[in-house]
Amino acid sequence: MIATTLAVQDILVLDGALATELERRGADLKDPLWSAKLLIERPELIREVHLDYFRAGADVATTASYQATFEGFARRGFSHDEAGALMRRSVALAIEARDAFWAEPANRAGRRRPLVAASVGPYGAMLADGSEYRGYPGVTREQLAAFHRPRLQVLAAAGADLLACETIPCLDEALAIASLLPGLQPALPAWISFSCRDGEHVSQGERFADCAAALDGLPGVAAVGLNCTAPEHVPALVAAAQARTRLPIVVYPNSGEQWDAVAKCWHGERDAADFAAQAQRWRRGGARLIGGCCRTGPDEIRALRAALLG
């Protein structure tokens, strides 16, 4: 799927943030379920955001399943079957938005039919304690595989085109996910993107280049890269990956604003034109799937598409 698209289109434009964009539109996500909370309360708002990203130029919608886990929903009183239904809803909402966008003939000019990527958040997202930005060295690869297996199967069978395994803080978790991909029914390609703490290391401390090399050639892994990372680290990380993998490189960093964990707010300025200018540098460095993460929105994706694809 990714390879087919990149064979005819040099760059695949991803969408921007979901959770922070939902908050910008008035949603209260101060909850362990984060954006998955709206799968229960306001699914129509999720659909609206997906549609606006397609209109802004995104070739891919990433679903609201990042924080959707059997464990997280169970803590809210949902059964296993109910939790699975909510995960499938996340994919259905993105598909509905894609189909509504594609039903308008004017939207097809110069565009390929957009894709839906089912978001697979890390083990740390289920913990809801920020550990996807620190890692969890005491958790084994086997435990991580056991956590991911049932959710991956539900999402793979829900109708998505691919899987977005994102904000992964450590190599063990990436390899645990990769080990499960060949057994999914249906088998879907996946990108695996790491959260990185600087221009050399993923969040738990392994070298990003080593992580990219370890995933190279594994069945089902269609792209490797980073997300939810400060944009100033992207050029060095892309260069490191380029030297160690033949896979397409995916990058979708944060806007450049800084999160204050004490005050629980963002500081700094958001500039769509500057973000797009940086994206041109990432493209020149070798990135081929490019979008935005926290605090980016449709304006950033619109500017990014114009800068990258004209």
Rank of each mutant, 00 (worst) to 15 (best):
V49K: 10
R295C: 01
R141G: 15
A17V: 13
A158I: 03
L162I: 02
F101M: 11
D198K: 11
D216G: 02
C293T: 03
E41I: 01
A83M: 04
L308N: 06
R305S: 12
E232Y: 02
A106C: 06
P114Q: 03
A27R: 12
A118I: 07
V262K: 15
V202D: 09
E206M: 00
L218K: 07
G199A: 08
L218V: 03
L14S: 09
E166W: 04
F70C: 10
R284H: 12
S35L: 02
R111M: 08
G297N: 12
A209T: 12
G217Y: 05
A176E: 08
G121V: 11
A58N: 13
K264D: 02
L45V: 00
P32C: 01
A236Q: 14
E173Q: 08
L14K: 04
L171Q: 02
D31M: 02
G124R: 03
A263D: 04
A145Q: 07
S203I: 07
D161N: 08
G57S: 04
A306F: 03
A27N: 01
R197W: 12
L308P: 00
Q278G: 09
A145L: 04
E71W: 00
R283Y: 06
L45Y: 01
A241K: 01
N107L: 05
E200W: 09
R55L: 15
A209I: 10
L18Q: 09
P248D: 11
H148S: 05
R141C: 14
T4Q: 14
V251P: 10
P298G: 10
V262E: 13
R113P: 14
A7N: 14
L93H: 10
C211H: 04
R42P: 05
I95L: 15
N227K: 14
Q280E: 15
D198L: 11
W191F: 02
G285S: 08
W259I: 07
G121H: 10
G256W: 13
L184Q: 00
L181N: 02
E41H: 03
A272R: 07
A7K: 14
I11R: 08
L304M: 15
G310W: 06
V116C: 05
A273V: 09
A236L: 13
A287T: 14
L38T: 04
R151V: 06
D52F: 06
Y133S: 07
R288D: 08
A106R: 15
G310F: 09
A85G: 08
R55P: 08
G57R: 12
F208Q: 05
A3F: 11
I2N: 05
L181H: 03
Y133H: 13
L247G: 14
L38I: 06
F147D: 00
L14G: 10
E104L: 09
Y133R: 08
L33W: 01
L309G: 03
L18H: 06
A109R: 13
D198I: 11
V91A: 01
D198M: 12
E82G: 07
Q67G: 01
